[in-house]
Design a protein around this nucleic acid. Sequence first.
DNA 1: GGAATGTATGCTGTAGGCAGTCGACGACAA
DNA 2: TTGTCGTCGACTGCCTACAGCATACATTCC
Lengths: 243, 243
Amino acid sequence: MLANQGATAKIARPTTLRESVFEAILELIIVGNLEPGQHLVENELADILGVSRQPVREALQLLSGEGWVDLRPGHGAFVHAPTVAEADQLLAVRTLLETESARLAARNSDEPGVAQLRMLCARGLAAFESDDVDGSVAANSELHAAVTALSGNQVLAELTSQVARRVRWYHTPVARQRGRASWDEHTALIDAIADGDEELAAEVMRRHTEHTRHSYLEQRAGHGEESVSAPARRRRPRAAATS
Amino acid sequence: MLANQGATAKIARPTTLRESVFEAILELIIVGNLEPGQHLVENELADILGVSRQPVREALQLLSGEGWVDLRPGHGAFVHAPTVAEADQLLAVRTLLETESARLAARNSDEPGVAQLRMLCARGLAAFESDDVDGSVAANSELHAAVTALSGNQVLAELTSQVARRVRWYHTPVARQRGRASWDEHTALIDAIADGDEELAAEVMRRHTEHTRHSYLEQRAGHGEESVSAPARRRRPRAAATS
DNA sequence: GGAATGTATGCTGTAGGCAGTCGACGACAA
DNA sequence: TTGTCGTCGACTGCCTACAGCATACATTCC
């Protein structure tokens, strides 16, 4: 028998080429190297990534399934150009899903689960106060994921994470400016979950996500842009959502 | 200038082979010709459907995206075997999404929208009373889709329709036994939407979907089966959901 | 000069084929 | 009899090639 493989268990997962391509293209979209509406020519991507067209095609279809690209039959793939209205709708759905997650999390909360939430919250707050933006962002994502996991509803958790990932693309520039308040709200949320107060947890989460939504809309209101991800173009956003 | 082309505008949409394959395999799964857990060999499907492996592969990945099949890298595709717990979670999410849809529909309802709802409801009720199961089922789906469309939230509508489609697979045998009550609830729902009573519409929809969920769970409770779609195997279910 | 048509180019959709890999089965040894 | 190893078969993942179609441009006709 081999030695402890715990550390390698995760990377031992046989990763296919199309998944790598999926991640690579998604990164290009989020970073802004690929502009909204841009035509993604399969051959070009294949050449850039050093693979054939086949895994590129499959990756593009995966991306289409999550709403990152639009697939027009006979015309190929285009980077999805989100409108302000769509972003607003997405944020509304996010609020709905996460609010329910918080409610269920309060209902099903247990000792180790709450402990993990507090740990993630402490880590995120520490990262925020030491200006570690990446760390803060990562902790935020993990915290929200942990809440949905606590809900006990796997389907809800998957849907939520998928929506949250798309949301992160949109309001990335917004979130950083309200980082401190965000972490205070996280603390209140965890308290409510620990108390098993379903209604309070739901209300706190609802207000928490709506704050982000309103910040986003206010910022967008003045611009009057149709494509909401324009400011993310061309340069790598160092900060991401902390909602 | 040519004559009126309105009738041909719709079929002009270029449908790809992989979409046809997607529909075909989905049909095989829903009908029960493909049993949960069954290994879907690409070559076999390609032979059966008279196409090459490529569109089959792409269709399987689409199916995976919607949760119909599980893709294990290096092993291929397997028909998803849903558990009772998963079906329950799915029904819970469906309730959440449709309840919000109803609330928003009441908020945004307009004259033509309500008129369409009433038309669909009348058609469905007529079909039900004349034992036209297929017609009743179709009207039911269209009615729910129309409600989500009225919500004005496209993202919510897409998510809801996707979840609803999966739900239909599970509780197909359950729904027919409460067809009449279901249509009465539909009428109450439309009234609430027409009145613009958000809370009432939401509550009616919540109770409506929860009815289905409880019926489902009660039926399942006695069986103690792990795979919930077992009863749908091997023969074509003539009736489908009217929830 | 403008419009319609022919032509060229580039991309997608699909087919066929090859190598790598996983699992099953049987032989062999303890 | 049981555990282990090697071989075989089958299937997946990926690559290359071809056909169809749409678009853009050049050409010809009115």
